[in-house]
């Protein structure tokens, strides 16, 4: 009889345990994002400057700046068009260089994109086959990274177009 009661207790408590775990699981977002994978160091990579095609090492970028903001964009990506004015605004109000990474794009299209909307970037690097974006840990366009330029660690990631709120957050992080 005691044995039976222990059994009942065990079964009931494990059932309730499973119930609550699943209940908590329901409230989790089931869409995966990499937004939380930060504080990782970006290893050095080589790329080419967009206009001049000069070879550039990532570690040598903006040596006098404490922070850089890296923005992955492409002329064929519609959200990039949408975030463009925010990027321009961000660049004007921040003590950091804005680095563009032109993702899998045709040079001509990208150039006309910039001449149409303006060029907010201090430097643009080319990522012709998408490998640099993988190196950084991006999986789509646009994505924006706030990077500590001294130790090359990612401080904050923004997937998708940045908005006013993001700009404020970046500013406060840089001013700290």
């Amino acid at each position: 009889m005691v044995n039976k009661k222990i059994k009942l207790f065990l079964i009931l408590s494990s059932t309730i345990f499973i119930f609550f775990t699943l209940y908590l699981g329901l409230n989790k977002n089931n869409y995966y994002t990499t937004e939380n994978i930060v504080y990782k160091k970006i290893e050095n990579f080589e790329s080419y400057e967009f206009f001049s095609n000069k070879k550039i090492n990532f570690k040598n970028i903006s040596p006098d700046k404490k922070y850089i903001i890296l923005n992955i964009w492409s002329s064929w990506c519609l959200p990039c068009r949408k975030e463009h004015k925010n990027l321009t605004e961000l660049r004007e109000n921040i003590e950091a260089d804005l680095i563009g990474l032109n993702y899998k794009d045709k040079f001509e299209n990208a150039k006309s994109f910039l001449s149409e909307l303006g060029n907010p970037y201090d430097i643009i690097l080319k990522d012709e086959n998408g490998l640099i974006s993988i190196e950084i840990g991006a999986y789509g366009v646009p994505e924006t990274y706030l990077i500590n330029n001294i130790n090359k660690k990612i401080i904050k990631k923004y997937l998708g177009p940045i908005n006013e709120e993001n700009i404020k957050e970046i500013q406060s992080l840089v001013n700290q």
Partner: peptide, 13 residues
Amino acid sequence: IYPIFLEVFTNEK
């Protein structure tokens, strides 16, 4: 169902 449990307890996917 293991991934659901793991995520609830460790936040890892």
